[in-house]
């Protein structure tokens, strides 16, 4: 399959697709599932940013009168056994998931890009050592590695981000390294070298931007798995501590006690996690189709 030429497709579609919005509309029609994903992700990010405004109540305020209140007009999604409003907690939970998803991916990407660039660009024994280190890190499944890391660091938001970021490093580093390797010998890099550009500058100015497309695809997919890993860690009691409203933590508490008596405590945080990850996955698929046509599904 050849590269999809969107501009050509746009041109064929007529003159009315020049504006930003109409281009967006075109994309949405071309990738309907991706559009759904983008909407879900947008809602998720907006919820996280404006959690204070959206949530009607303080997510940590306890009230004995409303212990295990059913979903209804007072508490849309019910209340947990301490009488805390589930709707407010889920809204604030978006913030934690976003922080962990973006934070872990960001940190993992920064380290991974540095390692990958250095490894691919410098080559030699340096590359060899880094590759073996990455081998070691990849000898354990992501969740197992994250569990060991989280247990070593102790439960907190910062430590959870680190514990998830580190196992993400090898994938990013490998992607960056392989595109760096192929780019290193490209004519435009040679040209830059010929005009006397420094190696570091070449790496950052010319090689890095060209690895961006696969990186964006990877990052979108990894944000979803970072959110899932956080939920699993918190579920196992190793992630974000109380009283912070982490979705995974909410499930772990309610699952242990109230699967029967208050099923809404189990259902709603689970929906929140699933929907968010589902959205990032849909968006990731569409982005891959757009940016990286070789891997088109």
């Amino acid at each position: 399959m050849s590269v999809i030429d969107h501009d050509a497709a746009l041109a064929r579609a007529g003159a009315n697709v020049t504006g930003f919005w109409s281009q967006l509309a075109f994309m949405a029609r071309r990738y309907p599932l991706g559009a759904v994903g983008a909407v879900i992700v947008a809602i998720f990010v907006l919820t996280a940013v404006f959690a204070d405004v959206i949530a009607p109540l303080d997510p940590t305020a306890t009230n004995s009168k409303f212990s295990l209140a059913h979903p209804g007009s007072a508490f849309w999604l019910g209340a947990d056994f301490m009488g805390r409003d589930m709707y407010s907690r889920i809204v604030h939970g978006a913030r934690i998931s976003l922080a962990v998803g973006a934070g872990a991916m960001g940190l993992g990407a920064v380290i991974g890009i540095t390692v990958g660039l250095a490894s691919g660009y410098l080559g030699g024994w340096f590359d060899l050592v880094l590759q073996r280190l990455l081998d070691i890190m990849q000898a354990l499944p992501l969740l197992v590695m994250a569990i060991v890391m989280a247990a070593s660091l102790g439960p907190s938001l910062r430590n959870t981000i680190i514990a998830i970021a580190i196992p993400l490093v090898p994938t990013v580093a490998r992607v960056v390294r392989s595109s760096t390797l192929s780019l290193r010998e490209q004519p435009f890099v040679e040209a830059a070298r010929a005009v006397g550009m420094g190696e570091l500058r070449i790496a950052v100015r010319h090689v890095l931007p060209n690895t961006l497309a696969p990186l964006i695809v990877l990052a979108t997919a990894q944000i979803g798995s970072a959110i899932l890993v956080e939920a699993s860690l918190s579920f196992l009691g190793l992630g974000i501590p109380e009283p912070h409203p982490s979705w995974g933590r909410m499930l772990s508490e309610s699952a242990a006690e109230y699967v029967r008596t208050a099923p809404w405590l189990v259902i709603f945080p689970g929906i929140a996690i699933s929907l968010t990850v589902f959205g990032t996955n849909l968006l990731g698929d569409a982005l891959r189709d757009i940016l990286d046509p070789r891997q088109r599904s």
Partner: peptide, 11 residues
């Protein structure tokens, strides 16, 4: 970091 300790602490 056990529920029976955490619950009263949150209150």
């Amino acid at each position: 970091n056990i529920a029976i300790y955490r619950d009263p602490a949150v209150i």
